[in-house]
Write a protein that binds this DNA or RNA. Sequence first.
DNA 1: GGCTAACCGGACACGCGAGTCCGGATCGGC
DNA 2: GCCGATCCGGACTCGCGTGTCCGGTTAGCC
Lengths: 180, 180
Amino acid sequence: MTEVTHRRTDARRNHERVVAAARELFARAGLRVTVPEVAAHAGVGRATVYRSYPTKDDLVLAIAQESFADLASWTRSAVDSDMPLSAYVPDLFARLAGDHGLAEAFLEGRLVPATDLLTLIGELTARAKATGEVRGDLTTVDLRVILCGPARQLIALDEWNPAAWRRYAAMVVTALRHPR
Amino acid sequence: MTEVTHRRTDARRNHERVVAAARELFARAGLRVTVPEVAAHAGVGRATVYRSYPTKDDLVLAIAQESFADLASWTRSAVDSDMPLSAYVPDLFARLAGDHGLAEAFLEGRLVPATDLLTLIGELTARAKATGEVRGDLTTVDLRVILCGPARQLIALDEWNPAAWRRYAAMVVTALRHPR
DNA sequence: GGCTAACCGGACACGCGAGTCCGGATCGGC
DNA sequence: GCCGATCCGGACTCGCGTGTCCGGTTAGCC
């Protein structure tokens, strides 16, 4: 979290606007959103965005790290409270389906090293395997493929609504069970 | 199938090369492959590609229609031989995972009206529902989301190998069953 | 073998997104 | 209120992908 300290209030204000705009646009339309779009949505010039984040990748990284940290702390509480995968996965799926950029970043694994998050999820799945809740050979790659794939497609098809994600979350959970 | 008749043999030969190159590259790297890449791989100039296909979309459409026709005729034979979904889906999944462009085109539904194919798949699923093989409320959109999502991710992650697709095909089939 | 129509492809024009620069505006301390 | 450090953003360059054009070449018929 490279927290830049601006010495003037307008700079800080603009920085906040940029971050807010990036969060919203990345969530809604994925990581292909352009810097000009972010700038316009924030009501600032392009150069103002590049001042805080020299590269578009820097901007993406910053936003993604935020989201990943949220996800990790939430997952940590799930681990602490011994949440079963059947409860965790639908929520995770909902978060991914509600944030296109997050789903992309989490799946592709580029830019952000999600080691914390993956370790925590590994913890959860290990317990779920022990109780026989899911197939014994489940990996975190499996989770990425099975969760992020459909989540991204839901957004791409503009089928994002509570009924849809509940439906697909149920299917996804089913997919993780022992094959018969 | 707008079959262009070339009056010279070299024209026909080049056209074939372009088609072959496009098939290969779209399958391997998806629809984002550029026209210059196709031309280079075919060993011709860019303009030669544009002669047969005035727009990149025209090229994509032509290749996608081919693939869709293949898929449809194969599906028709599956319907005729009363193939169960548990046998059909893994093969479909393999085809999608083996052709990135096909998976993209099938999922996104833009460009190509896949009505024939969807009708046939609807036929198969209707029978599978009747025998209780899958959940009763399964739709073709479900199939697109659940199949194409993971298939595309597999390719994106470069995890494409027989072991991987068999594994995910099994999971995908499980996902279509009745929830418990 | 020669002639013409058909065809080839290198070179060009255009649009768009990433990243840079500098003249002008604004904040904030005195 | 004044002044300097800081910041803003319009205008620019650069790279890349799409689509066009024309001079040179080749196939195919006589």
